[in-house]
Nucleic acid binder design. Structure first.
Lengths: 143, 143, 143, 143
DNA sequence: TTTT
DNA sequence: TTTT
């Protein structure tokens, strides 16, 4: 039977998205996202930051690379996925990532002006992973 | 600024909860939870299962140990936390867990009869981590 | 700036889905969903049930009409929408509905055998509103 | 069996919170919250705003009245509740509200300086409804 | 490595 | 009635 695997995050990007193009033309983007929690401990104010590995595929990766930058505040919805890989010493390791399914840019509008390299404004702050859009060929944004 | 770090899961327990009592009387429970997703790949039906490490503290751990068992269907709400530890070869490793904040038992009512060893019915299927209840001293359930 | 409007429900259908075909061939389905909460009040166990108006469009409506029936347990994700209408005395009224964006059937697998009138099994328990699928013409299911 | 009834919103307050003190000393606050969605329709950019009735109880109401104001951006988690009431012509009407269970202030820190009438800063942006705190007597904030 |  |  199917289950539910849902993650909802609001936080700040720790770095600019890192974009890779896999063989076959598939685009993947990833970045670290910080979600901070502040609480009182013995009268002192303590901040605890949790870091999340965000991964985006296809059209969602393209859009993220255009509009998200280090420091920006973003709402992300996705699912958890733990995968194994071999590090450079060939030791098997595990990492848990949040595979984004859609995101919404929060914060001031001016925070989301496209970088000089690209000049197209998204008509919608909410961007969905449509699992099919190919931006590479048309050059259009996936919405 | 504070952010949001929320996980919502519906899945089946892979094992009975494992309960530990830390020094100081704090109770911790943990179990693996499977969330399955079924999809079509080239006409064939493929099932993909994701495993999550669920951790529960204090009163929530106590209740989980009484009412949750291997195979049961449960709704879990919590937050992501990645922590490091040293394995037996003293290699630093990372693991991402879902720290439960509340859970709700799903499925047939008969699925949630308490085990013979304990005979107290929870008045509510939704159990919250109140971050304070001490069950150890009173022997009462935290609700 | 865009915001977030998200509803997550797990509950039982109060009635079979009611399906309507609008002019233009668009399909809409709707049903009441009950989410129950049980809690202790002065030592007595009290159950409180909340009823939600669920609305599904297009392909999602088609699938719901085939696989969801009165009494079934379902996970629904959607958004809130309040709309006004005139009752039969032409008094303006408001109703808040949950417009479903996807749903997942929970409970026993046997609970989701298709009704005799239709014999197609969905390859995936999670069904998404793709906002475009036209089932009317092809006769195919939207996945 | 228990279900899940959860709402997640990110939006702007349409008005300052309106606070009432019920007989028995219980505090209730309420305000309208706007969640906007922007999308493309036939090449034109269309914005659709949904208005939600937010209701907060007890300590959560007290905190909301201190820190939330018209125009502020806020994350709200709660549950749906539809209740009936009689309007001034004694006609029975229904209204669906979002009963907040916790909220987190988003946006710039300077946006959340307390109003002149009160001068206490919350040590945590996330405020929970603890269903018990009485601020009236102690004068302290509920955390 | 973010933000306040 | 918010915001961009």
């Amino acid at each position: 039977m199917s289950g539910i695997n849902k993650v909802i995050l609001v936080g700040h990007l720790g770095k600019d998205p890192e974009v890779r193009h896999l063989e076959g033309g598939v685009t993947v983007a990833s970045f670290p996202l910080a979600t901070s929690e502040t609480f009182n401990k013995d009268g002192r104010r303590v901040e605890q930051t949790e870091w999340h590995n965000i991964v985006l595929w296809r059209g969602l990766a393209e859009v993220a690379s255009k509009y998200l930058q280090k420091g920006k505040l973003v709402y992300i919805e996705g699912k958890l996925r733990t995968r194994s890989f071999e590090d450079k010493e060939r030791v098997k390791k595990y990492v848990t990532e949040v595979v984004a399914e859609n995101f919404t840019m929060l914060g001031r509008k001016s925070d989301f002006e496209p970088t000089p390299a690209n000049g197209i404004l998204p008509p919608n702050n909410k961007i969905e992973d449509d699992f099919s859009t190919s931006i590479d060929e048309s050059g259009d944004l996936p919405f």
